[in-house]
Design a protein around this nucleic acid. Structure first.
Lengths: 109, 109
DNA sequence: TATATTTACTACGTCAGACATACTACGACA
DNA sequence: TGTCGTAGTATGTCTGACGTAGTAAATATA
């Protein structure tokens, strides 16, 4: 079966995460589930990939974090997208269009 | 201006090169020019990226190399795609379809 | 009640691919 | 004479993904 390799999705993990933060803050486990569901199980992000993406994006100023006790009594780290993050996300969407156009020229159907 | 980042194209450099080898053997400089032209200048592969891709793909059995003296009297290293390379290329094309479907869910237009 | 599973992470280390920088060498051309 | 185009090679660094492992609390199941 065809699978999505890490080399291919590399560079779009951040974009996917940011997309899921556009509406409201969220946290690791939730984001992970949403990526799996939205992609119909075709893509499952690794935990280490996800949490290192959070760290990187916070350092880059694309997200901010805050700790909060959830309904279930557990302490979670939530992430909120910043203005810079929104801008970055939109730039990535533009880049995706361009990438598609280019790669398509080298693909046979 | 929007540019294609190396993280995004990563995983498709090999595919692009193989595409250009489908019809006949070719060599670095020529491949490089063709990628630039076919992409309308939107993507220019770096020399180091290209030649290390040749080395990697030869090791993986996707291409074979032979040295030949060209019309201009210069010795060039040509590369020819193998059966395994053709198979790999087609697998990558399938993967591209899948990747597109997945990424699209996280992109706003 | 004991155990397994789900939730929600953190730490550490490795690897591959892209690329920056630099260098070689030859012919054409101005 | 020097620069541009052609056609590479060598070396080393960086980033993002991920393998492996461990922690800990809540919830479901036997």
């Amino acid at each position: 079966m065809t699978e999505i390799s890490s080399d291919v999705i590399r560079g779009y993990n951040d974009t996917m995460i940011l997309y899921l933060l556009l509406d409201q803050p969220s946290y690791g486990y939730e984001i992970s589930k949403q990526i799996r569901e939205l992609s119909d199980g075709k893509y499952v992000i690794k935990e280490t990939t996800l949490y290192s993406a959070f760290t990187r994006m916070e350092k880059n100023g694309y997200i901010t974090s805050f700790s909060q006790v959830a309904e279930n009594g557990k302490r979670r780290t939530y992430y909120r997208i910043t203005e810079a993050g929104i801008q970055f996300y939109h730039d990535k969407c533009d880049e995706w269009q361009l990438t598609q156009e280019v790669v398509e020229k080298f693909i046979t159907h």
